Simulated assay, not measured.
Amino acid sequence: MAASWTRGLAWLALWFAGLPAWAAGSEPSTQQWAQARAAAAEIAGAFTRHCPVAGTGDQPAFEQCRRGLFGDAALRDSLDAIVLWGRQRDPALSLQASSLTQFAPDVLTGLYMPLFMFDGQHSVRYVASEGLFQLRFATAFRNRLAPGQFPYPFWHDAEKWAMYQGANEVLLWWEPMRGRVKAAQFTVHGTQPPVTVVKRMPAPTDFSGQWMWMDAQGRTQPKATLFDGLYRADNPYLGQLEGSYKRLALRLRQGECDSCHVPSNPGKSKRLVLLQTPAHAAGEIGRLLKAVREDRMPRDETGIANPLDAATKKALLEDGEAFASVLDAARRWETQARMAGAAGTPDLR
């Protein structure tokens, strides 16, 4: 009992010191090394199978990559229920100190990872300070896609756009105890050049301050965030999804949620949650509704919970639940279509 109590106090000390839940522990075993290498090889196989090297503006190759990664059960099963994502500005910077965005696996595999291509080169190292294996995959970024194929205008930040264009590796941080990827990053600090030549280009469009916009044909953009290419085109709930999200977005603005949960990260959060598009909100809707019900958001400028007034809270919950309901219906329809043997893309789970 005394030993257990001592270990408990030690864990609490680490937690209050701000270390991640997967903080460094003992050195990995031979078996864990073998498991990490096997996981890296399996993921590298999925990357190269679905996202081989192609032109940086090759739309068919990009669509193949999106459908493949989004529907790859083995890849999805390797990701934790919440995965942190972002750029590796400094290899010496710990994950705890890095600014990363929280994603559901579907968002990462459907919107972000397909922006990269792979040739199978990979390596594995153990980072003792993190207590995690780092699975490294040689890559290159698709910088010449149409603006609406990016999850949001990365070029709102010149440094971010430059780092995406210069990316030469994708890093997956793999936890040996649970065999899951806890965090993912892209980096320009790999030892080799990108797997194909990526000619730097200026921002595809001017950034107007809007994370979603209408193109010249009156279509909502970014197209990628409307589940385009992930759900079947004949899914009867696609139109309802966009409409229900617009109602939810209005409530989010009324609740001042959009003052924090946007890519520019005005609150300088180390763990950002994005809600500015339907696909991003779909990955977080359950956690969002729980936080609102429990009066844990929004937060004031000091980070303290500042509960909504009763009317705003009620309206936000109603529209949030309506969006979640349509999303569930769209997912069920996709599942049923697939089970019936119809050709198409997998469900968003």
Rank of each mutant, 00 (worst) to 15 (best):
R49Y: 08
Q192I: 00
L132E: 07
D295I: 03
T56V: 13
R349Y: 01
F133A: 13
E63H: 09
L132R: 07
M201K: 08
V273I: 13
G179D: 07
A44W: 11
P202C: 03
L252R: 03
F133E: 12
V127A: 13
A46L: 06
Y237N: 09
I82H: 04
E318S: 14
I304G: 00
P20V: 10
R37N: 13
W11V: 12
A21I: 08
T56E: 10
D228S: 11
K160N: 12
H189F: 05
A44I: 11
S244Q: 15
Q88M: 14
S29K: 05
W155Q: 06
V195Q: 08
E318G: 02
F116Y: 10
M177Q: 15
V197D: 11
V127I: 10
Y152Q: 03
A167P: 09
G239L: 06
P147E: 03
G286W: 01
T109I: 11
K270P: 01
V107A: 13
L12V: 15
D328Y: 01
R200M: 09
E159P: 00
T302L: 09
F154R: 02
L75V: 09
D157K: 04
V188G: 08
L75R: 05
D319V: 08
A249D: 14
M339L: 15
G283K: 03
P114H: 05
L135E: 03
L108R: 02
A146L: 10
Q192T: 10
K160W: 00
G344C: 06
D72I: 06
S325G: 03
G86D: 10
A24V: 06
W155E: 04
A203K: 07
A203L: 04
F186I: 07
P20G: 13
E169M: 05
D228G: 01
G110E: 02
Q149K: 02
A340Y: 02
P346L: 06
E256C: 01
Q102Y: 01
A249N: 10
A73C: 00
L274W: 04
L238S: 05
P222S: 06
A337G: 07
F70W: 09
P298N: 05
